[in-house]
Design a protein around this nucleic acid. Structure first.
Length: 765
DNA sequence: GAGCACTGC
């Protein structure tokens, strides 16, 4: 042991590693020369005992065995690909290796350099940076920090910053060469989020212009060679993970009903397998709740011959208190020495990627997940239950081997796994509406999108659609160049339509109200579990997420997930509906949301008021947060905050007109047949039953097009046909309009306008 | 009269 340690010391002492000296001190009792090393070079304070305790554990991480190799490779290359499985320690250790190396070769001790490490999720950026600050024995926000939307926890002293990939993209908009950074680490690159994919292309350009910048791409398996090709043969390093073996079982025959098969498998495991918790992957809330009931019933029928079970559902919209239950221990045996209890977690993909549950020994994988697909032709996207990828299946099975050897039951045949599953899930950029992304790219100075070096180029049609939308919104001119309006739009963390509606809202004298509506329509109202208690050694961050996120991938409007501020508990649906009706505005759902926001403020943001009115307090707080951010951006561009007099007839009219100025491409017309057709695309759509209108308006704008049991438009507001002609005549240009009822109506409206003009002329004469 | 996989600025 001693020799091994000494060997390690000799390997690392090039790096001026204080821990090496500390080891020396400990082992041989030599304080000599170790005195300076007992001082933390980052903050000049003596190391705490805890530092050494953690260091001991850190050194056992697989990645430490390759520290020297890593630094050598990094030293002689501008780009490096690092592949590491779960438990290798790459997310926490590699960035520390990097800052040590940069520090030792920088003569300028004023340290005007920074190392950035991106994460796809905020929680990861926060928790990992906290952990690393602890490991380095510094205060979070000082030498080590993080930066996420709404929270910049870093200082001028910061040398290592964890940030979300989207945040780095935002920084690039202001600092196109990312000049603050010496090294950028793109972590979880295999997830291929929209932001990471854009960063790939951007960094490839930046590296050409900045020979002093280095890039480390960290990923979990499989696609590494693809990354290598993309980054012109950058060296590849592999770090082993640390997972227990997981035995994989397939079914002999394809299962007809995966839900039934999953439940059957749960029961069998519970009856026949040794103790250990079960994780079942299903596709959605309803299915999960259904499965939980059935599992309870079936195991209940078995009586006392089996141990007690605790069945826990898990999906993102579950209230946090309920989510917390996944960490409860398995139930105790009913009688002493009786059959042991078992916890059964029935979860969506959230457990595949974002969340880790320790103690899982058995995984049941039916092989399906809900995935978003985008069809640029009809500009509609929908959630489809579809087969997962091999990478995803691999990640799911890995969930069984966190604490000890486990088993994974795949409810499909081995042949099907080999032949039918695609290796990776399509990256988000191929499944998304790219209006927002294109706007960002334009702002980043990338003019030629066709020749932009995407790792996976999106369909030309998707890019064309995006350019078209941006042109209609006035963000791009006819040559495709960013306009002044486009510049401002790109600064808003919103989809282009919404950004446009905000920018023009002062002209309609209602920017205060449009700000509130926008905030209510955006923001992250999602509930998630936040874990402060991190495992000492390995910090888990999402490994593979073949079935991973789809960002701004909504039809038409490209990217607003309605935060449902209305709570509707199963046991109090009627009361909840009545409460909602009290906020209802007959002209539409947007105005209803405005009512809710105003009421929330009038009641001083009181959580009790929220509870009594079936309003989601978290969603409201989030909306308020978003609103504040939007206000700051508005002020930055001298956009006036104003309101029409509430008692004026025009109060709501102005708001509706301003909304139309952004959302004129999302209009539906009520046909004489009694159903709605979307304008120009002529898709038959239905008002979503959640709407609060008391009538069927002839024209509506809608915020969301959802394809479920029918084609629904959700969050709709009544507008007038005349406004189409007034506010968006460039889009409602009749020479470029498919022949339909709506066209004929608009034609009449134009003629009416003409007549009015004539008359007013006459009257003036 | 219906339902929401998961993220991000």
């Amino acid at each position: 042991m001693g020799t091994e340690r000494k060997r390690k010391i000799s390997l690392f002492d090039v790096m001026d590693d204080p821990s090496a000296a500390a080891k020396n001190t400990k082992i041989s009792g030599l304080a000599d020369g170790g005195i300076n090393s007992l001082i933390n070079k980052w903050n000049g304070k003596p190391y705490s005992q805890r530092y050494y305790d953690i260091l001991e554990k850190r050194r056992t991480l697989p990645v430490w065995l390759q520290k020297e190799e890593f630094l050598k490779t990094l030293n002689s290359n501008q780009t490096l690909i690092l592949v590491g499985e779960t438990g290798s320690g790459k997310t926490t250790q590699i960035p520390q290796f990097v800052i040590d190396a940069v520090d030792s070769e920088t003569s300028d001790k004023r340290r005007k350099w920074l190392v950035g490490c991106t994460q796809p999720r905020r929680v990861a950026a926060m928790s990992v940076s906290r952990r690393v600050a602890e490991e380095m024995d510094v205060t979070i926000g000082e030498e080590v920090g993080y930066s996420i939307r709404f929270e910049d926890c870093s200082s001028p002293r910061t040398v290592l910053k964890y940030l979300t990939d989207g945040m780095l993209l935002r920084e690039a908009m202001a600092d196109p060469l990312l000049e603050r950074y010496k090294v950028i680490i793109l972590d979880e690159a295999h997830e291929r989020t929209l932001a990471t994919d854009v960063l790939f292309g951007l960094l490839k350009e930046v590296l050409k212009n900045r020979p002093d910048l280095k890039l480390v791409v960290m990923s979990a398996t499989l696609e590494a060679e693809k990354f290598q090709d993309y980054f012109s043969g950058a060296p590849l390093m592999k770090v082993p993970g640390r997972l227990h073996p997981v035995e994989i079982f397939y079914t002999q025959e394809p299962e007809r009903d995966y839900l039934e098969a999953a439940i059957r498998t749960v029961v069998q495991i519970h009856m026949c397998e040794p103790p250990g918790d079960i994780l079942v992957f299903l596709t959605g809330e309803e299915e999960i709740e259904d499965a939980c009931r059935k599992i309870n019933k079936e195991v209940g029928n078995l009586g006392d011959q089996v141990g007690p079970i605790k069945v826990v559902p898990l999906y993102s919209t579950l209230p946090p208190a309920m989510q917390q239950k996944i960490f409860d221990p398995a139930p105790e045996p009913v009688t002493e020495g009786g059959p042991p209890g078992r916890k059964i977690v029935v979860s969506t993909n959230i457990a595949e990627t974002s969340l880790t549950i320790d103690g899982i020994v058995y995984v049941i994988d039916p092989g399906f997940a809900k995935q978003k697909v985008y069809n640029p032709r009809i500009r509609v996207e929908s959630l489809l239950v579809s087969p997962i990828s091999k990478a995803s299946a691999h990640q799911r099975s890995g969930r069984a081997g966190r604490t000890r050897p486990g088993k994974c039951f795949r409810l499909y045949t081995e042949k099907s796994f080999n032949n039918d599953l695609q290796p990776q899930t399509y990256p988000e950029i191929l499944r998304s509406n790219l209006a927002n992304t294109v706007l960002t790219l334009k702002k980043l100075g990338i003019d030629d999108l066709v020749h932009f070096d995407f790792m996976d180029p999106p369909a030309p049609e998707t890019l064309m659609r995006a350019l078209e939308v941006l042109n209609y919104l006035g963000a791009l001119d006819d040559e495709g160049n960013l306009t002044k309006t486009g510049e401002i739009m790109s600064e808003f963390p919103l989809d282009p339509q919404m950004a446009k509606m905000l920018i023009v809202s002062p002209e309609f004298n209602c920017s205060n109200e449009i700000l509130s509506v926008s905030a209510m329509l955006s923001g992250p109202p999602f509930t998630f579990i936040f874990l402060f208690l991190l495992p000492l050694v390995s910090i888990r961050v999402r490994l593979s997420s073949a079935v991973s996120s789809v960002g701004s991938a909504y039809p038409w409007l490209g990217g607003v997930l309605i935060p449902n501020c209305f709570i509707r508990p199963r046991e109090a649906q009627k009361a909840a509906d009545e409460a909602k009706a009290r906020f209802g505005h007959i002209d539409g759902d947007h105005l209803t949301l405005l009512n809710v926001y105003h009421a929330f403020k009038q009641h001083n943001e009181d959580p009790n008021w929220c509870y009594e009115n079936f309003i989601n307090n978290r969603a409201m707080k989030s909306a308020d947060n978003v609103r504040q951010q939007l206000v700051r951006i508005m002020s930055r561009f001298n956009l006036k905050m104003c309101s029409t007099d509430f008692n004026s007839r025009d109060y709501y009219i102005n708001i509706r007109k301003a909304m139309l100025a952004g959302y004129f491409m999302q209009v539906a017309h009520l046909e004489r047949t009694g159903h709605y057709l979307t304008v120009k695309d002529n898709q038959v759509v239905h008002l979503h039953p959640s709407n609060c209108l008391d009538h069927k308006p002839e024209w509506v704008i809608y915020n969301e097009y959802v394809l479920t049991s029918r084609n629904f438009i959700r969050t709709v507001t009544d507008i007038r046909g005349e406004w189409l002609v007034d506010v968006a005549s460039h889009y409602y240009d009749l020479s470029n309009f498919p022949n339909c009822e709506a066209k004929r109506v608009i034609e009449k409206l134009y003629k009416k306008r003409e007549r009015e003009k004539e008359e007013s002329k006459k009257n003036r004469k």
